[in-house]
């Protein structure tokens, strides 16, 4: 278990695809895909449960990624924590401050791209992309109700149907 000063990256249940300048992480437990830019990916890789935040700052700069502050690293850690990419969830460092203010403050004193993690959830069922439809005029009213209640909405999908009226 990591404490708030030596965060540890979660490895279990993740599919990681490294690419030049970015990283894709797919979380098989939440079915979410996360796209980490270079800065966020570096901080995540440095979260080994031993490194402190100031160690990560030093590693960041030693790898010629630019001059940064501890707040810069915390910005990444806050995002990693909220997205479930650390072993233990941490109390947000910038709680109560607007994201805009935080980015402005950190951006002014950092010479590196701000850490950004974009995320997108996959549907709980692949059936979500499909639809029912009825193809006979007389079936329509009945079919619409049946389709919604019995034939579509039984696997967590969003029901939709087409009708010949």
């Amino acid at each position: 278990m990591s404490d708030s000063h030596t965060p540890k990256a979660r490895k279990r249940g993740l599919v990681v695809q490294e690419m030049p300048g970015e990283m894709l992480v797919y979380d098989t437990e939440t079915n979410k895909a996360h796209c980490l830019n270079d800065s966020a990916a570096f901080v995540w890789a440095s979260c080994d449960g031993v490194n402190t935040v100031s160690d990560i700052v030093r590693e960041f700069e030693a790898n010629s990624k630019g001059t940064v502050t501890e707040d810069f690293v915390w910005l990444a850690i806050d995002q990693l924590s909220s997205k479930g990419l650390l072993e233990a969830k941490l109390e947000p460092k910038f709680k109560g401050k607007s994201r805009r203010d935080v980015l402005k403050t950190i951006g002014l004193v950092s010479v590196a791209a701000l850490p950004i993690i974009a995320s997108l959830a996959a549907p709980q069922s692949a059936l979500a992309a499909t639809s029912c439809n009825c193809s006979k005029e007389s079936d329509c009213t009945f079919q619409a109700a049946s389709c919604m209640n019995l034939m579509c909405d039984n696997r967590g999908m969003t029901p939709s149907f087409t009708c010949n009226q």
Partner: peptide
């Protein structure tokens, strides 16, 4: 990476 992330909701075997 953004492309992979954006296409995952349409990827049938992703789960």
């Amino acid at each position: 990476a953004e492309g992979i992330m954006t296409i995952t909701p349409y990827t049938l075997p992703i789960l």
